[in-house]
C-alpha cells in the first residue's frame, strides 16, 4: 500500500504522544507545517483505506478486568465450527488460526476472574473441547508503536 510522505510522517510520528489539548489535531498540524483540516482529512483517508484501524488509546492488558490468551487443539474438520462459537463470545477480541497442534488462539477479556472462568466454561461446554489458558504474567515490552 503506497503512502504519501505526509501520510507516512503522520503514521510514523504519531503512534504515541497524541496531544492532550483541546485541539490536538491543530497541534499535530503545527508540527507538520500543514493545516488542521488537512490533518483531519489525511487521517480520515487512512482510516477509510484501513491503513489505520483507529486513532486512539492502546489500553494495557489486565487493567480493565481479567484476561487470558487461550489455545485450543481442534481437528481440521471441526475448526470452522469451533472458531465460530469462540468468536461469538463478546469477550473474545482476537481469534487467530495458527499453524500448530494448538491451532486456535484467542484472547478473552472479562470484567473479573469469575467472568473469565464462566466464558471459558461456556466455550468448553459448547465446543466439547478443552481450553489451554496462558495468561500474561509479565510484559517486557512497552508497546511504542510500529516503524514503517
Amino acid at each position: 500500500m503506497d503512502l504519501t510522505t505526509l501520510e507516512k510522517d503522520l503514521v510514523n510520528g504519531w503512534q504515541k504522544g497524541f496531544p492532550l489539548v483541546a485541539r490536538p489535531y491543530a497541534r499535530i498540524a503545527d508540527a507538520l507545517g500543514i493545516s488542521e483540516e488537512r490533518v483531519l482529512e489525511i487521517l480520515a483517508g487512512l482510516e477509510a483505506r484501513g491503513i489505520l484501524s483507529r486513532v486512539g488509546a492502546i489500553v494495557a492488558p489486565n487493567t480493565l478486568g481479567a484476561s487470558s490468551l487461550v489455545a485450543m487443539r481442534v481437528a481440521r474438520d471441526q475448526l470452522d465450527e469451533v472458531a465460530a462459537i469462540v468468536s461469538s463470545e463478546p469477550g473474545v477480541n482476537h481469534n487467530y488460526e495458527r499453524e500448530d497442534n494448538f491451532n486456535l488462539w484467542f484472547v478473552v477479556t472479562a470484567p473479573d476472574a469469575d467472568g473469565l472462568d464462566a466464558t471459558l466454561a461456556r466455550i468448553e461446554a459448547r465446543t466439547g473441547h478443552a481450553t489451554l489458558r496462558l495468561p500474561l504474567q509479565k510484559a517486557y515490552h512497552i508497546d511504542l508503536g510500529f516503524a514503517l
Binding site: M1, G17, I51, L52, V55, A57, A60, T63
Partner: peptide, 19 residues
C-alpha cells in the same frame, strides 16, 4: 490513565496487514 500505565499510548494505530 496514561500516567498510571492503564493507557500505554495514544496515537495512530496502524493495521499491520494493510501495510
Amino acid at each position: 490513565m496514561l500516567e498510571r500505565g492503564v493507557i500505554r499510548r495514544i496515537g495512530a494505530v496502524p493495521d499491520h496487514y494493510r501495510l
